[in-house]
């Protein structure tokens, strides 16, 4: 019985993996937190909260490439910092949402299909347009595609309803494609 119970323990490699990850990159984590939180105690809280998130996703982290892992790490710290900042401050940081526009809310824009397919040929396209996206838009894209947040988690961080996330993502993607097309021109 005891042997069976012991066999159900977490893979000890997960703990060793995260400990080493933290030892290697705690400077980067604290430096990221410092960008958003002036207070050292807040930074410490943000890094601890980030570690707790990483612990829960250790299995996924171990399958990622080294560089993608670093992006995940820093994105997690950044998102945790956003969540620690009060809602009002966060709202000020984010750009105002795109205005409701029935034309823009149409999912299929024939002209954007061509642009979308064009972006496939440029691996660095997101790097080119990234700085032109707002923090909220960056958060949406990274949260969705790098961290793998659910719509509910994204909505909780942005203070909006989960069913509005799909449309927000559509707008951000379309904006990115449009910006990429302009870069091509």
């Amino acid at each position: 019985m005891l042997t069976y119970l012991l066999s159900t323990l977490d893979d000890p490699d997960d703990q060793a993996f995260l400990t080493q990850l933290y030892k290697d990159y705690y400077l980067l984590m604290f430096a990221t937190a410092k960008k958003y939180l002036p207070n050292q105690a807040d930074r410490e809280d943000a890094v601890q909260a980030s570690m707790e998130h990483l612990i829960h996703h250790a299995g996924k982290l171990r399958t990622m490439s080294h560089y993608a892992l670093l992006s995940y790490l820093v994105t997690t710290v950044r998102n945790t910092c956003f969540n620690l900042i009060t809602a009002n401050v966060r709202k000020e940081r984010h750009l105002a949402p795109l205005e409701d526009n029935p034309e823009m809310d149409r999912i299929v824009d024939e002209s954007s299909i061509e642009d979308l397919l064009t972006t496939l040929h440029r691996q660095d396209v997101m790097a080119l347009v990234w700085s032109q996206l707002s923090e909220e838009e960056q958060f949406l894209l990274k949260g969705k595609y790098v961290i793998g947040y659910s719509d509910a988690e994204l909505a909780a961080s942005l203070g909006c309803r989960p069913d509005s996330i799909r449309m927000k993502l559509t707008r951000v993607r379309r904006k990115a494609v449009t910006l990429a097309a302009q870069q091509e021109d």
Partner: peptide, 11 residues
């Protein structure tokens, strides 16, 4: 795919 590439570059 694009964000995976972007994450690698950022990493």
């Amino acid at each position: 795919l694009l964000m995976a590439d972007f994450a690698e570059q950022e990493g």
